[in-house]
Nucleic acid binder design. Structure first.
Lengths: 157, 157
DNA sequence: TCAATTTCCCAGTATTTCAGTGGGAAATAG
DNA sequence: CTATTTCCCACTGAAATACTGGGAAATTGA
């Protein structure tokens, strides 16, 4: 389990898709402008997300990306694992003969901890994140702005 | 909150100190041989751990490093934050005027998640890690080996 | 049919971080 | 005094990160 800015970019971008899920596909240039990430770098990230079956791309005008699965079935761990490829784990490869053949217990310990971190992140879905109070608050403000032709109806998807 | 091999090295090294806490200071060359990390790189890591008040160095023969605080007061989050310096967090710096002044909510969302990860790792102390069954098991084997004045026990592993 | 949009794809580059190398100074135990 | 070990610094190679740029394929709408 690795946790870097790359993973953060991916998660925030996926949240963008989640929050605008019912407004059609989201273009990468939108996310690029919002997040301040270069378009091509986003393309690279989304290529991986697509290969891992997390998003689907829609080409052409009006196209963009949308979630390939319901938001409550995609976890933060899924997203992070999709973008940063394999973790090499231990240096001694679990040979266990590092020093006197006994000292290497800390390796097991890390894999133990790492597993816990994974379980934790795997328990947080995009839908779950989107339901947080701090987010719903900002979403409500957005709804007001976007309701330009009619009275603000509380109808959510 | 960042989670990389650097942080893993630091945590596993700190666990080494924790597990041999009552055997006097642990030298970096010991950890180097065990973990397969270069001595100088470990020195760099421990310089940071020392500056953050997590370890104390003892010079001279018989010296080494020991925990600067009781193992149940040092958390995994402490260790990780000590070695990988600041996380820049958001790119737009929370200006909030990224697109239409409304799209940047995903940043808040990430800081929310990041805070949760921190809380999680901050709830795991070195002492807590050392008490895990898988670790105690290996520790027990070590105790047998270190008891050299008695008859050698049947081969482990 | 044509132009604009947008995903897709690939090859290259700059920057940063990771990890290691090497030399040497200061403290300390024996 | 000497061996050990922390401390400190400056440098290097390798890898990951993040960006640049060019272009092809699909799709929409005029």
């Amino acid at each position: 389990m690795k946790l870097s800015t790359k993973g953060r970019y991916a998660v925030t971008a996926m949240m963008d898709l989640t929050l605008h899920e019912n407004e059609g596909p989201v273009t990468l240039s939108d996310i690029s402008q919002c997040q301040g990430i270069s378009l091509s770098y986003l393309e690279q990230l989304f290529a991986r997300l697509r290969k891992h079956g997390l998003v689907t791309g829609v080409r052409g005008p009006g196209g963009g990306y949308r979630l390939a699965q319901p938001a409550d079935r995609i976890t933060v761990a899924d997203v992070i694992l999709a973008v940063d490829d394999n973790v090499d784990a231990t240096r001694c490869g679990g040979k266990g003969d590092c020093q006197d053949g006994e000292r290497c217990l800390t390796h097991d310990l890390w894999s133990d901890l790492s597993g816990q971190i994974y379980d934790f992140l795997n328990g947080i879905t995009l839908a779950g994140l989107a339901e947080r109070p701090s987010i719903r608050e900002v979403m409500a403000r957005q709804d007001l702005k976007h309701a330009r032709s009619r009275a603000p109806s509380p109808s959510a998807a």
